[in-house]
């Protein structure tokens, strides 16, 4: 039993993707356009800035949001990154992370709010979020390459798919955690649906939404190496090149750069979330 394949699902999927590529590739390339624009915009912006200005900006931001420890850590990390020769790659990675997070917020927060207010939509979207989070990212790299070709923008698209779920989940959770009595009180005083949302639910869900944002950023950062597999630049590329040429040193400094950035972004965004609390 089961010696032969009965259901040729693999063939069907290939056929389906091939058909999409042959007939509708232009649609997908159009979808890619805003992502590409955002990405190149941010990338050019970051590259145009003198590294010192970037460092000062990050240090100030970290200081305002998270205090002097994180600020000190950020400045040391960025200087180390520069000294290791990783500055340009770091800026590319930062641009990719920022642009995927922007799209995750634009799509994820409204979806999360809707899921938080509608049980039916929550039930509908939950299995999809589970699938997005558990499907190994390598699986969808192939169709992404076929539909969107390779490069930074395709890498950002893969990153968006992977890092979208937490912000939706936590936005929904945050909305659901708002005490029912507060919603009732607002309604009793004549709040419309929209007023309940903007004056009660969103402000009270904000810390949870920001925690979701933090997770989304971390997930996006964890995709940089995978994205490098489909030709995206940034801190993932030294790792991939090191892997292919068995250059342990090159792979290691790429790794160090990623870790430093992860800790920096994590501290800063977590502090922002806590401040809202």
């Amino acid at each position: 039993m089961f010696e032969e394949q009965v259901i040729p699902l693999d063939v069907w999927i290939s056929t389906c993707i091939n058909w999409l590529v042959d007939n509708h590739r232009s649609i997908f390339l159009k979808l890619k356009w805003p992502v590409e624009q955002t990405l190149t915009g941010i990338e050019h912006g970051l590259n145009a800035l003198h590294p010192l200005i970037v460092i000062i900006a990050v240090v100030l931001l970290a200081w305002r949001l998270a205090g002097w420890r994180t600020s000190l850590f950020s400045s040391c990390s960025l200087i180390l990154i520069g000294l290791l020769g990783l500055w340009e790659n770091t800026m590319i990675t930062l641009a990719m992370v920022l642009s995927s997070v922007i799209f995750c917020v634009i799509a994820g927060v409204p979806l999360g709010i809707y899921a938080g207010r509608s049980d039916r939509f929550e039930q509908f979207i939950r299995p999809m979020l589970d699938a997005m989070q558990t499907t190994p990212s390598f699986v969808y790299l192939v169709p992404i390459v076929m539909l969107f070709s390779i490069g930074n923008a395709a890498g950002v698209l893969a990153t968006i798919i992977f890092s979208l779920p937490p912000i939706i989940r936590l936005t929904s959770l945050g909305i659901r955690q708002v005490p029912q009595e507060l919603v009732e009180a607002a309604e009793a005083f004549g709040a419309t649906n929209f007023q309940v949302l903007v004056k009660v639910q969103i402000p009270l869900a904000m810390p949870t939404i920001l925690a979701g944002l933090n997770q989304t950023i971390m997930m996006a950062l964890s995709m940089v190496v995978v994205a490098a597999l489909i030709g995206a630049g940034g801190l993932g590329s030294p790792v991939i090149i090191g892997l292919n040429s068995l250059d342990i040193g090159l792979a290691a400094i790429g790794g160090i750069g990623i870790v430093l950035m992860a800790v920096m972004l994590d501290r800063i965004t977590q502090a922002a979330a806590q401040k809202k609390n």
């Binding site: 009595e181 507060l182 009732e184 009180a185 009793a188 005083f189 004549g190």
Partner: peptide, 13 residues
């Protein structure tokens, strides 16, 4: 609700 009837709650709310 805005103008004619207001409410005070046990849990303060």
């Amino acid at each position: 609700r805005l103008h004619n009837m207001s409410m005070v709650f046990q849990s303060f709310a």
